[in-house]
Structure formats: C-alpha cells, structure tokens
Amino acid sequence: MGLALFLSGCAKDHRKSLPYAAWSLDFFAPDYMEVWIETADVVDINEHVFRGAGSGIPALGYPRAQSKGVPAEFRGKPKGWRENPGGKGRYVTGADLPRLVYVRWQSMAEPQTYEAYIAIPESARNTMLQSEEAFCGAVGKWKTDYRKLLTVGLAPGGIAKVWLGGPCVKSTEVTRVQGTINPKGPYGGTSNGKHRPLSEESKAYIDNFGIPYGSW
C-alpha cells in the first residue's frame, strides 16, 4: 500500500535526458554489520518502476571475502559512516532520474528485517545532471565526471543513508531515512522467521563489542 501511495504522486517533468547512459544503485554496510538485501526497487521521475534493481550482499569492509574463522585482531571500525563511501550494485538501465528507492533487507547483526522508502530530493536529481571537472586517479588525468552513483548505506536499527558520487568525484550526502520493521519478517514470511546467518567473524565481533547503535 505504501508503494502504491508513492506511485500515485505527481512527478515533475524533466525534459532533459540523462547526459550518460545510466546511473548506478549501489549498497554497502558498516564493518561486521552484515546485510542481505531481499529487494531494491526504483521509481523514476516518469513513474516507471524497476523491480529487483538491487539484491544480495552489499559492499562490506570487514570481514574480508577470504576471511575464515575469528581473527586475532578486529581491524574493522563499524561505528559511523566512512568519509567517502562506495558500494556494490548495478546500473539501472532504462531508468530516468530516480524519484523513489524502496529497499527491504535483513540486518543479520540483530537479526531483523527492515524496509525503507527513500524519496530522492529534486536537488539531488539536479546534481546528477551537472558535470564536474575532476582529476581521475584511475586514468591519471582530468576529465568530466558526473555524480551518477547513488550509494545507500544500510545499518542496524533500520537506518538507510544515501550519497551521490562519481567514479572520479567524492560522494556528497543526500538524505537519511529511518526504516521500519517489515511485519512479514525475512523472505516475506516464508522462512519461519529465520534470517541468514552471520559469519563467524562478525558474530564474534558483535559478541565482544556489541552494535554501535546511534552512530549512524
């Protein structure tokens, strides 16, 4: 019902097409605060819906992908957000500028299942159309870049925070949303309330140091 209400809203007519092929929807989570994204859906300014624009495991600093067992030292720092966050995701091919992002995810650290409706401000959409000259370390030269990477951080407590960045430009904050608990639970209620399990390393960190609620 909530998504239907959002879909019924009026969208402003942006006559200018994207100056690039597509923008990317990316996700990450704080160190050790593992997440499983059940679905991420997008509504663009033309009211076109792109379901399944994101899913699965987001970017995560710690534990490393190759980590096994509990390390002698925990090097990750889950408290707060990184200065210039980046994520993992995919390009939303065929979409115009984003108006709304809906995401439902399992916060395995707690565990809990959340959902959030993230309204993208018009100011952010205008930023996505503006070019910027930036030095790109990847190619070792100055180039024209756009903020076409929409990055969402998902944290325990149902927090979703959004940044806009580009391959060569630093990310800027867009908005912060307090999600709500999904009443159906994990997997839409089809798993008898069972969430995906934490890795051994993340579980050990949380058992020792807890979850830094309030830092996100």
Rank of each mutant, 00 (worst) to 15 (best):
A119R: 04
D96G: 13
T144S: 11
T39N: 12
P71R: 02
F28Y: 13
F74Q: 07
T113E: 01
Y213R: 05
S215V: 02
T172R: 08
A134R: 09
I45R: 12
G188M: 09
Y117E: 06
A204I: 00
A4K: 14
G137R: 10
G137K: 10
H14D: 14
I181Y: 08
P71V: 02
I57V: 12
S171W: 04
G158I: 00
K79Q: 12
V35E: 00
R99F: 11
E83I: 08
N208M: 07
D44R: 09
E132L: 12
E115W: 02
P156Y: 05
A29P: 04
D44Y: 12
V139Q: 13
G189W: 08
S55G: 12
W23H: 04
P19N: 09
C10S: 15
A160R: 00
E115G: 00
A21H: 14
K16N: 14
Q178W: 01
V174A: 00
C136L: 13
G76N: 05
I120N: 01
E201Q: 06
S55I: 10
W216Q: 00
W23Y: 11
K194Y: 11
V169G: 02
F209I: 01
T190N: 10
E200A: 05
A204S: 03
Q130S: 15
S202V: 00
S123N: 11
A95H: 08
